[in-house]
Amino acid sequence: MSNEELKELFKFILHSESCEDITGKISGIRDTYVLHTLAYNMNYHKIYYYKSGNFCIENAVINNPDCDLGTAMLLFYFWNGFDYLLESNIRYNKIVSLINRVTVSKETQFLKKVYEKILNRGFKTGIAYKPKIGKIELSIFEKRNFVPPKVFLEETPGIEYEALKIWYK
């Protein structure tokens, strides 16, 4: 897909008012790198809170059979996956966990879906992604006596890919 085609795709997705149209467009993408570029650019465009909202883009990308583990991890950490890992530690957060079951946000539902799909090896590998987990974050896990699954701490297998930043007017 050319740069111009990527810009048009991104523009369509950001300005579409129909989740069905967005899902249809994204489900037709068969290029792992295009899906990764789309997810990467959502991280850079804070105007991303598009009209249709409700995690339509994210779910369409995650549900695409060509979605890569690196792309899934990018989206997981973009939507505050680090805090999700902390909150999922039931030994530390029993009360918060009970409260969250009653009022689960769309963000939490999305993160849970991605978390479980990653653990169940629901993504192919090909694009490398290294989570930004440093000594401070590791010490927080240690203080809470919690060790998250290794897949959330290590670089995903694959080729390093520098996604194109899409800017349009």
Rank of each mutant, 00 (worst) to 15 (best):
S88V: 02
R144M: 13
G24E: 09
A72G: 10
F55L: 06
Y129W: 07
T32E: 15
G70D: 03
W79K: 10
E4G: 00
F12W: 01
I127C: 05
E8T: 06
V96E: 06
A128F: 00
E155M: 13
L119H: 09
N3K: 12
T156S: 15
N59L: 05
A72V: 05
S97A: 09
K143V: 11
V147T: 15
L86C: 07
L98K: 08
F55D: 01
G122N: 11
I29L: 13
D66Y: 15
D31V: 14
I29K: 03
E154D: 15
G122S: 09
G134Q: 11
F82Y: 15
V34M: 11
N100L: 09
C19I: 08
L6I: 12
E17L: 12
S27I: 00
L119T: 09
F152T: 03
R121E: 15
R121F: 06
G134K: 14
V96K: 12
I13D: 02
T23L: 00
Y48V: 08
E4A: 13
E162G: 05
A39V: 03
Y40W: 10
S139E: 11
V34P: 07
T32D: 11
I136E: 06
C56H: 04
K165V: 14
V151S: 02
C19W: 00
T32A: 14
F146K: 09
P148M: 10
K150N: 08
N43A: 14
Y84L: 04
V61H: 00
Y161C: 03
F152V: 03
G28S: 11
K7L: 04
S2Q: 14
C67A: 15
K143M: 13
V61R: 00
I95L: 11
S139V: 02
K143C: 10
F76L: 10
R91I: 04
I166T: 00
R91P: 01
Y77N: 08
E142Q: 14
F123Y: 12
K130F: 02
H15W: 05
R144D: 08
W167P: 00
E116L: 13
M42A: 01
K135V: 06
K46Q: 04
C56S: 09
I95Q: 05
S16N: 10
N120E: 15
K143G: 04
G24F: 02
E5S: 14
I95F: 10
F78G: 02
L14T: 13
T32Y: 05
R101D: 05
